[in-house]
Amino acid sequence: MRSQGAGLFAYAIVYLAFLYVPVLFLPLFSFNNSMFIAFPLSGFTTQWYSQMWADAAVSHALFNSLKVGAAAALVSTMLAIPAARALTRYRVPGGASMLAFVNLPLFIPEIVLGISLLILLNATAIPLSLLTVALGHIVVCVPFAITVLVSRFEGFDKSLEEASLDLGENGWMTFWRVTFPLALPGIVSSLLLSFMVSFDDFLIAYFLAGSDVTLPIYIWGQLRFPYKLPSVLALGAFILFVSTVLVVFAEWVRSRGLDHRKHKMVGA
């Protein structure tokens, strides 16, 4: 039994290495003082980073991605809050099939989501822009936002809201002073994770952006030019770093909220 545990632990470490080592080559070579991504490493440099920052196209694409990500995160979370609440609090006729419908984007290849929206936008003569990218991203973000928020609302102590109503607060005040603070960790983590999904998405944006450029589209365009690779590596390493920080923070907020609630329940 003991030795089996050790074997599993070793496997887990190897598995983590498999997950992380391939990706860590991006930051490693982004500091390598050579045009070529190859061993042996030839020296330390930060020139690829300064080259990347000096490129106006990078900051333009970054700014576009931030705008789209913020819009997609806000809208999908705002849609998901009432939806998750309805699904956890009320017995809605057909609720399960509506949830299944909303989760469909997880099971449809992104390329199909992209081309079908492209057909719709074309048929309705809506011009392609960052707005249409945001619309496409909302479709893929909503399932994530709802999943995060449903798990937050589940096991929500109904009596807290009832107590507030009994003590004379009206529905809105109860929402603001009881429901919202309790849901806040879920909301923050839904915002951050939806933002990440949008910020990382390439394929949907590729079909719906028209002549606009988001960061993944910019990176995709650069991959064709070998001499651009080092600064793409720098950009990639930077994105990996920022998204890792955001994800750790989002998960931390989410789990802290859950622990907090458990303590309270035990305390009460």
Binding site: P82, A83, V102, V139
Partner: peptide, 26 residues
């Protein structure tokens, strides 16, 4: 049920317009 449906309706409307309609058109 009605309150639940009301809370779900914005999401359902968006998803009908941006998921179901495009798939039907495809």
């Amino acid at each position: 049920g009605a309150r639940g449906l009301a809370l779900l309706s914005p999401t359902m409307l968006i998803m009908l317009a941006a998921l179901a309609a495009p798939m039907a058109l495809l």
